[in-house]
Design a binder for these strands. Structure first.
Lengths: 184, 184
DNA sequence: TTAAATATGTGCGTAGCGCACATATATGGT
DNA sequence: ACCATATATGTGCGCTACGCACATATTTAA
């Protein structure tokens, strides 16, 4: 008789293997708690607002609609989010290439807040990581790198996962850029 | 969101060492995105509501105030959160030992939702993990276990980090139970 | 030239949460 | 016993972040 596990979803590995999933879940929660607390202290806002500031800063061609898809918000939610960033003097709406589009640009203070945000995030994660030795961190980096590299992500998935990423330290993103074609 | 036990400053390790922090930050975001999406589908609510359901299910002695501290919410926020759980017929308020306290108990459907929630969480994390080999998962589990075991956490910190943990698979939590005494 | 697609903005409502205040019970000092 | 303080919960009110439905402007395709 097979040992029955609760609701047997497609992805639940039977036996002790779920221990690792629980551990990663707990760690991820701790990491995100710290990142979000720091982000709120830096920009004074929560939700997807900090991520929006980072995403807009990746390039000067960001539009409302691309931002919406990356953040996973509704259209109106994104418009209101940008309204908040504009009223906080962090972002400017400029005319886009296409007459319909709005080109989102960081102001000087927006760029400064973005840098603080990225530094705060790295600091928050590092404060958890620094109990590991350099060798252990190297090992962990290799494993996470592989884990990310083997995901089946579209280009948009990648932007979503990387919406808080620090482009100053992440020069070569391990995530594949289009679904179905494995990077190896 | 959650009150934290330490925010050491000047934690940025110079050089390439920040790559690992960025990778773990990205992974944690991806993990929590998936956990939160699944949780919202299961209980129809977001924020700290799913965590509350899990925490209340850990024992039958949970009070409003302990819950507040674990979730890192204000008192009134916690009262309203419990109001929602009660109106959803997932939780009952019963008289506590102390005349002031309220004893929070899961209803039958609350316990069922909690099990779905835990299964959904494990499934969400596993779907990201299963690109790794069994050996790699074992390695990763060991590293995360050590990372958590070496944190300097109080008992309340532990409850906060473990507020989404699956007590059916996590039998021995690696986190230390009180600050300053290292578990080794 | 019109229909459909694309991109943005707005009115209105809701969920989740915090602050300040009110109430009820327990505890400790005198 | 009495009263001040601590503890625990509940409430009025407002705010932030967000979604749905609708309106408007521009581009593309038939």
């Amino acid at each position: 008789m097979v040992k029955l596990f609760f609701v047997r979803s497609a992805h639940i590995i039977p036996g002790m293997e779920n221990g690792i999933a629980n551990l990663l879940g707990a760690l991820s929660l701790a990491v995100m708690d710290r990142i979000e607390q720091g982000a709120r202290e830096v920009v004074g806002r929560g939700g997807e607002t900090p991520a929006a500031l980072i995403v807009i800063g990746y390039g000067q061609g960001m539009t409302n609609d691309k931002l919406r898809r990356i953040l996973g918000l509704s259209h109106s939610g994104t418009v209101r989010l940008v309204d908040r960033l504009v009223s906080d003097r962090l972002v400017e709406r400029r005319p886009g290439k296409d007459g319909r589009e709005v080109a989102l640009h960081l102001t000087a203070s927006g760029a400064a807040s973005r840098n603080e945000l990225l530094a705060s995030r790295i600091s928050a994660v590092t404060s958890l990581l620094d109990v590991l030795s350099a060798a252990e961190r190297k090992q962990l980096a290799t494993l996470i790198h592989e884990l990310l590299a083997r995901q089946d992500t579209s280009e948009m998935d990648r932007f979503t996962i990387c919406r808080m990423c620090d482009d100053r330290v992440c020069t070569k993103c391990p995530l594949p850029t289009s679904k179905g074609q494995h990077a190896r």
